[in-house]
């Protein structure tokens, strides 16, 4: 299943947030969206998953999601969004049971996704007992449990320290390499974008518009930050972003 954004514009009251964004999200690829803070990345992601409606334009789904996909468009949030009153297992089983999956079937799905995110020992733990990185792995496990056609990730690593971020980045790459998934990955971290993105969309400052789209063909598994090609791409992205970020920073003062 592919997604296509057709000239999306949006305003909150009299604030124009997004202007005429058109974008293709092909199946099996990771599209990264970068841009200065406040340019409307999170807003755009909410449109893609149908949590909010743009004032103009639309998001269309091309082709049907796989039949075994329980929740085709699935989010991973920056602040994890785990229910603190449910255990690790309970957070996942709530969603499965609401989609009619209970008993042995749910059991095997939960065991599988916890194994894939290396959380099997923490099945019964409460969210408050987990570190930030583990909480985000639970959120990723929960997202994998519904077998999404497209994963929508809004700065999933931004709340974590840099070592944990590095480890989770490796986990994401390993997950994708084992079984490629489609993802839209919003970040303000350019290093993450060049490690993970097949296509990197650079948004301008508010109102966010597509500034440039950078394609990186190198396989995810081969990418490491010492690679000169990636380094050049990252420099190029930074060059694009820098002026925007500086200008955005000054605008906030005047608001």
């Amino acid at each position: 299943m592919d997604l296509r954004l057709e000239s999306i514009s949006h305003r909150y009251d009299d604030v124009e947030v997004l202007r005429d964004i058109s974008l293709d999200i092909p199946a099996g690829r990771i599209v990264c969206i970068v841009g200065p803070s406040g340019c409307g990345k999170s807003t755009l992601l909410r449109f893609i998953g149908g949590l909010e409606r743009p004032t103009e334009g639309q998001v269309v789904q091309i082709g049907a999601p796989p039949a075994d996909s329980i929740n085709p468009l699935t989010y991973v949030f920056q602040d994890f969004a785990l229910l603190p009153w449910r255990s690790v297992e309970g957070n996942i089983s709530l969603i499965l049971s609401d989609h009619g999956i209970r008993g042995r079937k749910a059991e095997s799905i939960i065991a599988d996704v916890l194994a894939r995110t290396k959380l099997s020992e923490f099945r019964k733990a409460w969210p408050r007992q987990l570190s930030g990185g583990m909480k985000q792995r639970v959120a990723i496990a929960r997202a994998l449990a519904v077998n999404p056609a497209v994963l929508l990730m809004d700065e999933p690593l931004s709340a974590l320290d840099s070592q944990t971020r590095e480890l989770l980045m490796d986990d994401l790459i390993a997950l994708w390499t084992r079984q490629p998934f489609t993802a839209v990955y919003v970040t303000h971290n350019l290093a993450e974008a060049v490690r993970l993105g097949h296509r990197i969309v650079v948004l301008s400052r508010r109102p966010g518009a597509v500034n440039e789209i950078v394609e990186i063909d190198m396989p995810l598994a081969d990418r490491d930050l010492a690679n000169p090609e990636l380094d050049a791409k990252q420099k190029h992205l930074w060059h694009l972003m820098r002026a925007e970020a500086e200008a955005a920073d000054k605008e906030l003062v005047h608001d």
């Binding site: 998953g49 949590l51 929740n71 468009l73 699935t74 989010y75 949030f77 969004a81 709530l94 969603i95 609401d98 989609h99 519904v146």
Partner: peptide
């Protein structure tokens, strides 16, 4: 929002 995003 999380609940809605999982179509609960």
């Amino acid at each position: 929002r999380m609940g809605q995003s999982f179509s609960l």
